[in-house]
Design a protein around this nucleic acid. Structure first.
Length: 308
DNA sequence: GATCCGTGGGG
DNA sequence: TCCCCAAGGAT
């Protein structure tokens, strides 16, 4: 743990808030504290770029304006509405989460971290984000941006992707949390997204460079992402990662109208033009993984988006 | 702790 | 072209 310099922290609060008022991003989910809207936006934002959520969130909200409407939707509907966002698991979990809220919580999202984190698709980050942004509670929020910003500010970092352990950052974020946690957390995320970026931080325009332990030091050590967390090669078939095959398969169903049922051989051809019946076992396993995730249903030789 | 889960854009 | 990344979570 770095030594806790109270003056430095106070100066940081002032400088960063000042910067935030002038430079903050206009994000639609910042203009509301409606728990449903915040929930949907936070799920969408998991590992997904802000610009994409800005585009897709209004469409989703128009189709499913509140807990009630979403709870009554079928999985297929929600998965279709998830188009372009990736990680379809999230759509499935969001639906089951919302059903729990309607059935067990009288249609009101829990406002405490422990209960939120029990719900499917909500982990530590999202639980804290909801509590802070929807219920205005004074809690820390640590996403990859904030982890990076605080790592650089308080520990000496020389390589772009080098970061302090997440657990240490959570503890530290708690300690330096100012009164207005909402504004502070949003400000730190904006700073991370706009100035203190992963690859090449703009230390020359950073409002807190004078307090930063790593200022103008990032990149001193050559390092690739792959060196930090030795990225393993993912499972592939025919040179293409399995998650891409899965994505293609789901995308086929999004484009299908009517009953939306496709037979296995047709499905094979649809996602792989060179598909032969010799590859049926592979397709079988692929469909099975999607089945296990609750994304598709299978009846005999026919596959469709999950209903319920 | 490592691995899996999509998609689209930037360098 | 290829590699990397993006408001993480579940197993």
């Amino acid at each position: 743990m770095v030594k806790f310099d109270k003056k430095k922290v106070k100066a940081l609060h002032r400088k960063i808030h000042e910067w935030y008022e002038k430079n903050r991003r206009q994000l639609i989910w910042r203009t509301t504290t409606d728990p449903y809207t915040i929930l949907v936006s936070e799920i969408m934002l998991q590992q997904t770029q802000v610009s994409r959520v800005q585009e897709k969130l209004p469409l989703f909200l128009k189709k499913f304006p509140a807990f009630q409407q979403l709870a009554q939707a079928s999985r297929a509907d929600v998965i279709r509405a998830w188009q372009g966002l990736g990680y379809n698991n999230r759509a499935v979990r969001l639906l089951s989460l919302v059903k729990i809220v309607v059935n067990d919580y009288q249609g009101k999202l829990p406002s405490n971290i422990e209960k939120l984190q029990q719900l499917p698709g909500i982990g530590r980050y999202t639980a804290h984000a909801i509590v802070c942004f929807a219920f205005k509670k004074r809690v820390p929020v640590v996403d990859v941006n904030i982890q990076r910003v605080l790592s650089r500010l308080f520990w000496k970092m020389s390589a772009p992707f080098q970061m302090k352990r997440s657990e240490d950052i959570w503890r530290f974020a708690e300690k330096i949390l100012p009164r207005d946690a909402f504004r502070w957390n949003q400000a730190l995320m904006d700073l991370g997204a706009l100035v203190c970026t992963a690859r090449q931080p703009s230390c020359t325009v950073c409002p807190v460079a004078e307090f930063c332990t790593s200022s103008n030091r990032i990149g001193t050590v050559k390092q690739k992402r792959s060196m930090v967390s030795k990225k393993k090669s993912e499972p592939t078939y025919d040179g293409i990662p399995q998650r891409i095959w899965r994505g293609r398969l789901v995308e086929i169903f999004r484009c299908v109208n009517g009953k939306g049922t496709i037979s296995m051989p047709h499905l094979g051809k649809a996602i792989k033009p060179t598909f032969t019946k010799r590859e049926v076992p592979w397709l079988d396993r692929l469909v099975q993984t999607l089945q296990q995730d609750g994304i598709v249903d299978r009846v005999g030789n026919n596959v469709m988006l999950a209903h319920e």
